[in-house]
Simulated assay, not measured.
Amino acid sequence: MACSACGSDSAIVCSLSDEYRDYAPADAAVISICTHCLTVDPADATSVDTGREVEPDFSRLSDSVPTRPERAIPLVLAIDLCSSIATNRSAIESLLEEVERAGTDPLLVIDRLRADPDVEPAVDLERRRHQLEQLLY
């Protein structure tokens, strides 16, 4: 499945718990995260091995992204929603606060993603960084 934003075929597929489905595109239960531009797209549930619990390898996104799902999933959902901060303000706030509660500084991760030459986020993180800081503090 090609990324809707950049056309890349490299993605991480993961299931979402109920608490995150409202933040996913089309309220998807399964999402794919593009390893090139970090765009989140709904994915087919058959693309996840339901026979066993396997955590996605979030390190494929970037060394900057946390590898634990409780940190990585809300972070990538928040980044994806940053295409429209005005529309998604409360959702982004909730997701970034969740990342912080899980023990990761989301702004530090965003700074590191901005500096990562292998990642070209579909969202302009340079412009959004200040707005995200205002949401959190």
Rank of each mutant, 00 (worst) to 15 (best):
79 I>G: 10
36 H>T: 13
7 G>D: 05
115 A>N: 03
31 I>N: 09
81 L>A: 05
16 L>G: 03
64 S>M: 05
96 L>F: 03
8 S>L: 12
27 D>A: 13
11 A>W: 10
27 D>F: 12
62 S>N: 04
113 L>W: 04
86 A>N: 14
87 T>Q: 12
132 L>C: 15
112 R>Y: 02
106 P>S: 00
125 L>Q: 01
100 E>A: 10
130 H>C: 08
122 A>R: 01
120 E>T: 11
14 C>E: 15
101 R>T: 09
32 S>L: 01
43 A>E: 07
74 P>W: 04
122 A>H: 09
91 A>M: 09
35 T>W: 08
43 A>N: 03
72 A>I: 13
63 D>N: 09
83 S>E: 12
42 P>L: 00
61 L>C: 10
115 A>E: 10
8 S>C: 13
67 T>R: 09
76 V>R: 04
25 P>T: 05
77 L>D: 12
87 T>D: 12
117 P>F: 03
60 R>G: 11
18 D>S: 15
96 L>W: 03
9 D>G: 15
92 I>K: 08
66 P>Q: 00
61 L>Q: 06
25 P>E: 03
124 D>N: 15
1 M>Q: 08
117 P>V: 05
80 D>I: 03
67 T>E: 13
70 E>T: 10
107 L>T: 03
121 P>W: 04
33 I>E: 06
34 C>N: 08
131 Q>F: 14
109 V>A: 02
99 V>I: 05
74 P>E: 06
18 D>G: 11
1 M>W: 07
19 E>D: 13
69 P>M: 12
89 R>G: 00
104 T>H: 02
24 A>G: 15
63 D>Q: 08
135 L>D: 03
115 A>M: 03
66 P>K: 00
50 T>N: 06
83 S>R: 09
105 D>S: 04
77 L>W: 11
51 G>D: 13
8 S>R: 09
112 R>M: 02
31 I>C: 13
